[in-house]
Design a protein around this nucleic acid. Sequence first.
DNA 1: AACCGACTCAACCGCGAGAAT
DNA 2: GATTCTCGCGGTTGAGTCGGT
Length: 213
Amino acid sequence: MVRAPYFDENGTKKGAWSMEEDQRLIAYIERHGHPNWRQLPKVAGLARCGKSCRLRWMNYLRPNLKRGNYTQKEEQMIMELHKKHGNKWSLIAESLPGRSDNEIKNYWHSHLKKISRHNETNLIKEIQKTKTTSEDVSDDSHHILESSTSMSSSHVELNMTLYRKEDSVASWEIWDGFSNNFWTEPFISENALGQDYSPVSWYGSEAEDPFFI
DNA sequence: AACCGACTCAACCGCGAGAAT
DNA sequence: GATTCTCGCGGTTGAGTCGGT
């Protein structure tokens, strides 16, 4: 279910991570932490870009990560927090220990979005229904209408926030040249990586290999 | 059994913010 | 103050899986 591994034109490995790469990354971070993601793949002997390493660690390898099987409580929390914060997945993730923002985002798009939309459609129907009956002008129904519209306006507000974000397409200069992109820049200069990249033989000897266990 | 569309989720990409120089 | 570097976030992609026909 993942992209097949491949090397881009600069020799940076992309696509699915192998077990060996995972182990190498874990071993390095456990020993040295990750003070500098950009340098990490270089010193850890990985043909990845720093960004890729960070993502792999944050979403998959770091300790205490829960995987799959969201509880009802968690689902409810995500719904509530999404209503409150919108697509601020990192903010939502803070309230759900063991879940990464990426995982929550995926879960939202595959599960909860539907539920949320369903609820919203019901709400709109309810409002419309209330609106037509309120035209008979009874005081009680007026109250209901007021509360309904105030609820829908919060949804409108949320949508407006999202639209605003979508509309704000930054006028970004097209970066010519890969060298300007430090995140994807490979760390394979020097003579580190040959065509036949082999993380195991990266270091000349076991003594030099910081990952040798 | 074979096909196909929907779903899932790991990984990629573009961009902005803040820190460092 | 300007530029460069590093990090993190959110949107999107794409290939494997699943379920229906």
